[in-house]
Simulated scan of single mutants.
Amino acid sequence: MEFDIEKSIEKVRVVDENRRYWFIRTYGGATYTDFIEHNYVGIGFNDVPQKYIENCKGRNDSDIKNLREYIESKYSYRNGTTSKWINQLIDFQHTIKEGDIVVIPDRNSDQFTVGVVESDVYVVEDNRAFLHNKNYEPYPEKRRKIKWQRNIIGSDTRELKGLTNSRQAISRADNYADIIEGFVSSVYIREDQMHLVLKINQHEDINAFDLNDMLSGVTYFYNEFCKEYGIPENRDLTIKIQVQSEGNARVKGYFKKGIFGVMIITALTANGEFTMDPATGEFSFKTGDGIVSSILEPITDFLNAKQERTIKFIEYQKSSKNLELNSLNTNNNVLDNTTEEGEGKNANDEGN
Rank of each mutant, 00 (worst) to 15 (best):
S119M: 02
K97W: 06
G99E: 09
K84M: 15
I104L: 06
S109V: 00
Y77D: 13
R78P: 01
I101K: 04
N87T: 10
R107Y: 13
G80W: 10
D106A: 07
Y77T: 08
K84L: 14
S109A: 13
G115L: 01
K74P: 04
I86K: 06
I90L: 08
S109L: 00
W85I: 10
D106R: 07
G99T: 04
D110N: 13
I96A: 07
V102P: 15
T82D: 07
S83M: 06
T81L: 15
K84P: 03
T82I: 00
K84D: 12
L89N: 08
D106I: 07
I86Y: 11
S83I: 05
R107I: 11
Q88D: 08
D110I: 09
H94S: 08
V102C: 14
D91F: 14
N87Y: 09
K84C: 10
F112Q: 06
D106P: 08
H94G: 13
P105V: 01
W85D: 05
Q88M: 09
D106C: 13
K74V: 03
F92C: 09
P105F: 01
Q88F: 03
S76E: 12
S83Q: 14
Y77N: 09
R78W: 02
T82S: 15
K97V: 00
D100W: 01
R78V: 02
K84E: 14
L89E: 13
G80C: 05
S109T: 04
K74T: 00
V116I: 12
V103R: 03
Y75I: 02
E118H: 06
V102Q: 11
K84A: 09
Q88L: 00
T81K: 14
R78N: 04
I90W: 05
D110T: 13
I96E: 12
Y77S: 15
K74G: 00
N87S: 15
D91H: 12
S76C: 05
T81N: 14
D100A: 01
H94P: 15
G80P: 09
R107T: 10
I104Q: 09
K97I: 00
E98N: 14
T81F: 15
D110K: 13
I90R: 05
Q88I: 00
V114G: 03
Q111G: 00
I101W: 01
G99N: 07
G115W: 01
V103T: 12
E118T: 02
F92L: 07
R107S: 13
H94R: 04
T95D: 15
G115S: 02
S109C: 11
Y77R: 11
S119G: 08
V103I: 15
H94I: 07
V117L: 03
S119W: 12
Q111H: 06
G115E: 01
N87P: 11
V114K: 02
D100K: 00
K97G: 06
Q111M: 09
I101N: 03
E98Q: 11
I104E: 11
D91W: 14
